[in-house]
Amino acid sequence: MTEYKLVVVGAGGVGKSALTIQLIQNHFVDEYDPTIEDSYRKQVVIDGETCLLDILDTAGQEEYSAMRDQYMRTGEGFLCVFAINNTKSFEDIHHYREQIKRVKDSEDVPMVLVGNKCDLPSRTVDTKQAQDLARSYGIPFIETSAKTRQGVDDAFYTLVREIRKHKEKMSKDGKKKKKKSKTKCVIM
């Protein structure tokens, strides 16, 4: 069974824990209790493949930012979460993405942009803004509501699919490099 290491990042209060708990335990946590770091595991079937999701729910508070490099190193894919009623959390996505790329030393890291709290009427981040940002990053965008469960499975499952595509691409690139290195030079 394939294991996928997913990391949920975003500013404090955007609903990272609520999304994760909704996926794992099928219930909505409405009281806000700032996370330092929590880890969850769940076995699911995605596109006919049974897999184990190892999900790291991270601290959004700035005082825990020193811990970010460590979990970013171990993560295979990242859910970059903002709240649709919090423009600052949307603007912060850029910083999370840049930090992930720096730590992973790669421009090509599996990510999904997630606009959470889409059940709320007080939207300050337009869907088109988020779609445009995701398009500019070359990553999928999904709106979710941890409260109603809308888009929750889709967000995590899409990230797994992005990781699969990335692994497939990397193995193809690896095979191309191996083929090239088999060419021999004969000096007579």
Rank of each mutant, 00 (worst) to 15 (best):
K88G: 08
I21E: 13
R68F: 00
K182R: 06
Y32A: 03
M111Y: 03
L53H: 04
R102P: 02
T183K: 12
T144H: 09
Y137L: 11
E168F: 05
I84V: 13
M188K: 13
R97A: 11
G48N: 08
K42P: 09
A11K: 09
A66H: 01
L56V: 07
S136D: 15
F156I: 08
A66K: 02
R68D: 01
H166G: 09
Y64H: 00
G138A: 08
M72V: 01
S136C: 05
Y32E: 03
P110T: 04
E31I: 11
Q61G: 06
I142G: 03
E98I: 01
S145E: 15
T127Y: 14
F90C: 11
A155S: 11
V45W: 08
K101Y: 14
I142A: 15
T74N: 08
A66R: 03
F78Q: 01
L56G: 00
S145N: 13
P34D: 02
E162T: 11
H95Y: 06
D105P: 07
H95P: 15
I100D: 01
G75W: 03
D173G: 08
R102G: 05
Q131V: 10
G10M: 02
L79M: 04
T183G: 14
D173I: 09
H27L: 13
R135E: 09
Y96Q: 03
T35M: 00
T58S: 05
Y40L: 01
A59D: 00
E107W: 07
T158H: 15
F82Y: 11
V160M: 13
Q61Y: 02
R68V: 00
I163C: 13
E162S: 10
Y157T: 12
D108V: 08
N116A: 14
G48D: 10
A59N: 01
C185D: 15
G10K: 01
Q43P: 10
Q61E: 12
F78H: 01
V7I: 07
H94G: 14
I187G: 14
I36W: 00
E76T: 10
S122Q: 13
T74F: 05
V45L: 10
L6P: 04
V186Y: 14
R149F: 06
K165R: 11
G60W: 00
D57S: 01
P121K: 08
G48T: 09
A18V: 05
D108I: 05
A83K: 08
E162C: 04
S17L: 01
Q43L: 08
L53F: 11
V109T: 13
K184M: 03
E3L: 08
K172F: 11
V114Y: 03
E3D: 13
K128A: 04
N116R: 01
I46R: 13
M188L: 05
Q99L: 12
K169S: 12
Y96K: 01
K167L: 09
G115P: 06
F156Y: 13
Q99M: 15
E107G: 12
T87H: 06
D47C: 10
T74D: 15
E98R: 12
C80A: 05
K42M: 12
V152M: 10
T2R: 12
S89Y: 01
N86S: 09
I187A: 15
L23D: 03
P34H: 03
G60L: 00
H166Q: 10
E98K: 03
M67D: 00
V103M: 05
M188R: 13
Q150V: 06
K165F: 12
G48Q: 09
V112K: 02
L133I: 09
D173E: 05
D30W: 07
T58C: 02
L19Y: 04
D33G: 00
E168P: 13
V109H: 02
E98L: 02
R123W: 07
A155E: 06
F90S: 11
V103K: 03
A11H: 10
K5D: 08
S122I: 06
A59E: 01
K184G: 12
Q22W: 09
K5M: 08
I21D: 08
V109G: 03
M67C: 01
C118L: 09
G77H: 02
L159G: 04
E49G: 08
L113I: 07
K88W: 09
Q99F: 03
F82E: 06
V112F: 06
V81W: 02
C118Q: 15
M111F: 09
T35R: 00
C80M: 08
L19R: 01
G15I: 02
T58Q: 00
L56F: 00
M72S: 02
T183I: 09
C80Q: 04
I163V: 05
I93S: 06
K42L: 11
A155L: 08
Q61F: 02
D92Y: 14
A130C: 11
M111E: 01
G174L: 10
A59Y: 00
K172E: 08
V9W: 00
T87S: 09
G75Q: 03
G77N: 02
S181F: 12
M72P: 00
M111P: 04
T50C: 07
S136V: 09
G15F: 02
V14N: 09
L133K: 06
K182H: 14
D154M: 06
D154T: 07
S136I: 06
N116K: 01
T74Q: 05
E49Q: 12
I21L: 15
Y157V: 14
Y137Q: 07
P110H: 06
K165E: 09
T158E: 12
K42H: 12
I55V: 08
Q99H: 08
T50A: 10
G77S: 04
G15S: 02
Q22F: 06
G60Q: 00
Y32T: 02
V44K: 07
K101A: 15
K104G: 04
I55E: 00
R135I: 14
A155V: 08
T144V: 12
V152N: 09
T183Y: 15
F90K: 12
E168M: 13
G174D: 10
D54Q: 03
R102W: 06
L23V: 07
I55N: 04
M188D: 14
N86Y: 02
